[in-house]
Simulated assay, not measured.
Amino acid sequence: MGMDFGILKLRAGAKHHEVTARETAIVLLGGRVEARIAGNLFGAQRGSLFDEGPTTFHVGAGTSVELRADAGGAEFAVIRAVNPRPLPVRVYTPAETATEDRGAGLAQGACRRLVRTIFDYSTRPDSTLVVGEVVNFPGRWSSYPGHHHAQPEIYHYRFTLPQGYGHAEIGESVFKVRHGDTTTIPGGLDHAQVSAPGYGMYYLWVVRHLPRRPYKGFTFTREHTWLLDPKNQGWQPSV
């Protein structure tokens, strides 16, 4: 995949320090944290993945990073990739991460979801990564119609309740995904997601650029593109 993904959990008052060996993106998933990045102090908090946007610390190799959790502890997603280019420190706040209401008016609302792109090639061209989040409404689809791109991708899932679940299509395979699961999507495979009724689904998504082929968008699965026209809502029951 060309990238590493992991979850960092800090107990109340605990501290994590490292000097990064690779490009690193650290997304706050929950809690309150004090961060010292390259000597500069930042504060951040997040109470809900579903109702609040992310704070993300994005740094290049050789950067000093110190994270200290507040009384309630803190949790982070950490993504790393090799990047020989210098990468200035960026801290993306919730206010800087726009939320896009995507899929409204299509397929009788069955694929409406919220998409948050934290950074991509247009805003961070020296990065090797693209990072964002999706909030999938209960019983609805996201990344739909299915789509594909040449670059590999990672999804990490959370649900509004710990027993929540959904299904992930990757190529011709379908996987049941639960709270805390992570999937890897090889380049070129169509993929789409659906959440079980009653359970909101969140996933963090990370795309890795390919050499001389950065990720700039995706291609929809051809046979389902007719659904992109709001005039084509699909079959509707008469009852």
Score class of each variant (00 low, 15 high):
Val89Ile: 14
Gly109Val: 07
Trp226His: 12
Ala44Leu: 10
Phe159Gln: 00
Pro94Phe: 06
Trp235Met: 06
Phe57Val: 08
Ala61Tyr: 05
Ile26Asn: 02
Gly109Phe: 08
Pro54Leu: 14
Glu223Asp: 15
His147Ala: 15
Val207Phe: 13
Arg222Phe: 11
Phe57Met: 02
Arg85Ala: 13
Leu49Phe: 05
Ala150Arg: 12
Ile26Phe: 04
Ser127Lys: 06
Gly164Thr: 04
Ala104Arg: 14
Thr221Glu: 13
Trp226Cys: 06
Gly132Thr: 07
Asp190Lys: 10
Val177His: 00
Thr184Glu: 09
Val91Tyr: 12
Leu210Ala: 06
Pro162Lys: 10
Leu10Gln: 00
Asn232Gly: 00
Lys231Arg: 15
Val207Arg: 10
Pro152Arg: 03
Val59Asp: 06
Gln108Met: 13
Ala150Asn: 06
Gly53Gln: 12
Ser122Gln: 15
Val207Pro: 03
Ser143Ile: 10
Ser122Lys: 11
Arg85Thr: 05
Leu106Gly: 05
Gly188Gln: 06
Gly198Gln: 03
Asp181Cys: 08
Val194Arg: 12
Gln151Lys: 07
Tyr165Ser: 11
Gly188Ile: 05
Glu96Arg: 12
Ile154Gln: 02
Val194Lys: 08
Arg212Met: 12
Ala71Phe: 05
Pro152Ala: 06
Lys176Arg: 14
Glu223Arg: 13
Ala192Arg: 15
Arg212Ala: 14
Gly30Glu: 01
Pro186Asn: 05
Pro162Cys: 10
Gly103Phe: 00
Val59Glu: 10
Leu114Tyr: 11
His148Asp: 08
Gly62Asp: 09
Gly217Pro: 10
Thr123Cys: 11
Asp4His: 03
Trp205Ser: 09
Tyr199His: 09
Met201Tyr: 07
His149Gln: 09
Pro88Ile: 06
His156Pro: 02
Asp126His: 13
Leu106Asp: 03
Glu133Pro: 13
Val206His: 00
His156Thr: 12
Gly13Lys: 00
His224Leu: 12
Val91Phe: 11
Glu172Phe: 03
Arg11Ile: 04
Arg11Glu: 11
Asp101Cys: 08
His149Met: 02
Asp229Gly: 04
Ile154Thr: 02
Gly47Tyr: 05
Ala12Gly: 11
Met1Phe: 06
Gly13Ser: 01
Ala69Trp: 00
Arg22Ala: 07
Gly146Glu: 03
Phe5Glu: 05
Arg116Asn: 13
Ile185Gly: 02
His167Ala: 05
Gly146Arg: 01
Thr184Trp: 08
Asp120Phe: 09
Val78His: 09
Gly234Arg: 14
Val33Tyr: 01
Ile26Asp: 01
His149Ser: 01
Gly39Pro: 03
Gln233Met: 08
Lys9Ser: 13
Phe76Trp: 02
Leu28Tyr: 02
Leu67Tyr: 01
Arg90Gln: 11
Gly166Ser: 05
Val177Gly: 02
Pro237Gly: 14
Val115Gln: 15
His191Val: 02
Gly139His: 03
Val131Ser: 09
Pro214Trp: 07
Phe50Ser: 07
Ala74Ser: 14
Gln108Cys: 10
Glu75Gln: 14
Ile170Asn: 07
Met201Trp: 04
Pro88Asn: 08
Asn40Glu: 09
Gly139Cys: 07
Ala150Met: 08
Phe218Met: 15
Ala69Tyr: 00
Met201Glu: 04
Thr128Pro: 05
